[in-house]
Write a protein that binds this DNA or RNA. Structure first.
Length: 751
DNA sequence: TCACAGTGACTTTTT
DNA sequence: GTCACTGTGA
């Protein structure tokens, strides 16, 4: 190990703990990295260091993260330090699993062209097993199966009863697995579970991978689940250098199967572990850390650490008690607008909320006020009906055994294949008795296209015509893809595209457009557009545009479909012009903003429902994650009432607000505990009117940086614009000339 | 087989 | 307030 001596530039910027973490070698390392402690810097530097100074081959480094965004960022930063780092394998757990299975899945009888089913597809598949069950029930059971896979539980595992103790659940799970295997596709959980099983059952593959990856790094380790832990154990032999980085206080994916014990027990599971703590926070000022820490401190099961702020005390966070979500939205908008006049960029701001549904109010308000914003996550584009239809057709053209895709599009647009006919075809395929001539064509059992063809003569004339049409569509598509889309085919497409309302672009895009038009999906959804004024054809066009990045081949299609399942958020979100970020608390992990507003701090919203024990602790960690995103300023909003299900309900302030250290925040607004004379302005002040521009009205609510929350008592015009007198929570009245106070004095709504 | 209207249920958080 | 599902009638 190169000790002492002047450090090269990229190492000299590290603090002693970070440097120790980068230089550590031997066996295993657990880095407990508090929020904002330079965790990503340590990992990327470590990669560069290993390659540059320890002679490690880039190809032998595997680094896994949980989100694609994190993986990309890591790759970029590592490559900036050391170009050879580009050759390292930097992926999300799931994308690594998929990569692994496409190469080695044959050992499990898995075709390399498999498609990844999302939750919706899994529900459809399970629904075909749970006869007559309403879809909601199938969705619930599908969810339970997903959890079972997170915990590495198979249908015959005794431990399965922890997930769902019903014997019928075990049966559904078993049948679901059988069917999924017969179809030849995988679900999310399989991307972790099946590689692990394969590595266990095939020592030669395990040896090969252990030979290949000498260094394994895991980021956000606190969010790993049991299956991922099992996978790591298979990947890491005695010779492998394993380094995991995480923060138990930021474990927020328990609901998805994340197991905090993974990080808490790491030193026990991997004997000889070195633990290095990074507790210097370079992101936030100390009052912000105090607020975040005082809440998460209440948690029991945690390793415990103390962050120290390297940036000084800064400004106290503001806790604002507001009336309702409308006032909350205008409060946020005012904060942003006000700061914008003094040169703060929109992109310095992030509005955080617990559930995606809460974004709507902010969007409406920001749109109204022309404040640019972007909504991160919740991109439901690939869940849209028309998009899923097109994707199902594409998937079916890859795999005629795909029952889920078949059920979705066989009769869409309606071609006379009703439920009865559909079930007959599915049953026929399951019976799987190919005729002799089909056997010669190597027809796979379960081939739905073949079954439909077989059954066709015995169907009613209407159904027979429909089946014929569907088969024609599928065959045309398959031929187009495998036969190479020649220039001639391209020209033919262009001719038809105008009529379908879609236009073909580069690469795979032509194929997508062709299939959408030829199948009638394009016409079908265009008709829907005309009825409902929707944008479905435009969405199909967007899907086709996204496909243009991929080659027009079977491989290109497989890649495209995988990308959609594993990395659906990226496309629209990269729009990097100056705008406010609207984002769920969960989605903020790994991000930072100069100014952060956490909204909806009310019992039932955040924390959600009456969460108790473990779940409440997870909500606290979520609070911690949200608050520690803020660099300079943090605002917390709590509303006295909130609309839910279209009904306005009174709400209680969040439990977390009581847990915050008194003195670490500045409270504005009528705190429910200390509601001071703000209920109604004195009678003499009523009716005094409004300013000439109509902006300032008696009774209107205002907020001032120094005095907090208040209500307007009187308004009159002067030579310098309106003069406003307001009474604040302290009970004192102050006079303002808003013209000169635009930065510290603002409206937050009318009466 | 399909279109429509009325009725219920429902909201975390995501790879 | 929204969405999905159910039953009815054509």
């Amino acid at each position: 190990m190169p000790d002492r001596g002047p450090l090269s530039g990229y190492l000299s910027v590290l603090n002693p703990e970070q440097l120790e973490a980068v230089r550590h070698e031997g066996a295993p390392l657990l880095i407990l990295a508090g929020a904002g402690s330079g965790k990503t810097r340590v990992i990327t530097t470590k990669i560069a260091y290993l390659i540059r100074e320890r002679g490690v081959e880039p190809e032998s480094i595997l680094a896994v993260t949980f989100t694609n965004k994190a993986a990309r960022e890591m790759a970029e930063r590592a490559a900036a330090m050391e170009p050879r780092a580009e050759r390292a394998v930097l992926r999300t757990f799931h994308s690594f699993g998929s990569w692994f299975l496409r190469r080695n899945g044959a050992l499990l009888g898995l075709d390399s062209k498999f498609v990844i089913y999302d939750d919706d597809d899994s529900t459809t598949l399970l629904g075909s097993i749970m006869e007559d069950a309403p879809r909601a029930q199938a969705a619930k059971a599908a969810h339970a199966i997903a959890r079972a896979k997170d915990y590495f539980l198979s249908p015959d595992d005794p431990g399965l009863s922890v997930i769902d103790h019903r014997e019928e659940f075990r049966t559904w799970y078993r049948q679901y697995e059988e069917k999924l295997r017969a179809i030849g596709n995988v679900d999310f959980g399989d991307l972790i579970k099946r590689p692990t099983e394969l590595l266990r059952e095939h020592p030669e593959v395990r040896a090969r991978f252990r030979q290949r990856f000498r260094v394994v790094l895991v980021d956000e380790y606190q969010d790993s689940n049991v299956a991922q832990f099992e996978l790591l154990k298979e990947l890491c032999g005695p010779e492998t250098y394993l380094c995991v980085v995480g923060d138990d206080d930021q474990s927020i994916y328990r609901f998805r199967g994340a197991e905090v014990r993974n990080i808490l027990d790491f030193p026990d599971r991997f004997p000889g572990t070195t633990v290095i703590r990074l507790e210097r926070n370079y992101r936030s000022t100390s009052f912000i850390l105090q607020v975040a820490g005082s809440v998460v401190d209440r948690n029991q099961g945690r390793l415990g650490k103390t962050l120290t702020a390297e940036r000084g005390s800064g400004k106290k966070p503001t806790l604002a008690f507001l009336r309702d979500q409308d006032e909350e939205a205008s409060f946020c908008a005012e904060l942003v607008e006000r700061s914008a006049t003094s040169g703060v960029r929109y992109s310095d701001w992030a509005i955080l909320y617990r559930t995606n549904a809460q974004s709507l109010g902010f969007e409406t308000e920001f749109l109204h006020r022309r404040i640019p914003y972007r909504v991160v996550g919740s991109l439901k584009f690939y869940e849209r009906e028309e998009v899923k239809d097109a994707l199902a057709l594409l998937a079916f053209s890859l795999n005629p055994r795909d029952e889920v895709a078949f059920r979705r599009v066989a009769n869409k647009p309606a071609r006379g294949i009703g439920a009865a006919t559909l079930e007959r075809i599915v049953a026929e395929a399951a019976r799987g008795a190919p005729s002799p001539d089909e056997l010669e064509d190597a027809v796979l059992p379960g081939d739905l296209a073949a079954a439909a063809r077989r059954l066709s003569p015995s169907l009613s004339s209407k159904a027979r015509a429909g089946v014929g049409e569907f088969l024609r569509v599928v065959e045309t598509g398959a031929a187009l893809l495998s036969g190479g889309s020649s220039a001639g085919a391209g020209a033919a497409k262009k001719g038809r595209s105008a009529e379908g309302g879609l236009s073909a672009g580069e690469g795979l895009s032509e194929f997508v457009v062709r299939v959408a038009i030829d199948s009638g999906l394009s016409d079908y959804h265009r008709a829907q557009d005309e009825i409902a004024g929707t944008q479905r054809v435009a969405n199909l066009q967007e899907l086709a545009n996204a496909a243009s990045l991929y080659p027009a081949s079977v491989e290109g299609l497989v890649e495209f479909l995988e990308h959609i399942e594993l990395d659906r958020a990226s496309a629209a979100e990269e729009a990097s012009e100056d705008s406010v970020t609207l984002i769920t608390l969960h989605n903020t992990k790994g991000l930072e903003f100069r100014r952060v507003v956490m909204t909806g701090l009310e019992q039932g919203v955040f924390p959600r429902e009456d969460k108790k024990d473990d779940e409440l602790e997870e909500e606290r960690r979520l609070f911690y994650v949200g608050a520690t995103r803020a660099m300079d300023e943090l605002y917390l909003c709590s509303c006295a009432q909130r609309r839910l299900y279209g009904r306005t309900m009174p709400t209680e302030p969040s439990l977390f607000l009581r847990e915050i250290d008194e003195g670490a925040v500045r409270v504005v607004g009528r705190s429910p505990s200390a509601s001071m004379g703000l209920s109604a302005p004195p009678a003499h002040a009523r009716g005094a009117g409004a300013s000439a521009d109509g902006l300032w009205r008696v009774g209107g609510r205002v907020f001032h940086d120094d005095y907090g929350y208040g209500q307007i008592l009187s308004v009159r015009e002067s030579g310098e614009g309106p003069v406003v007198v307001a009474r604040f929570e302290s009970g004192r009245d102050f006079r303002f000339l808003p013209r000169y106070q635009s930065n510290s004095f603002m409206r937050i709504g009318d009466e």
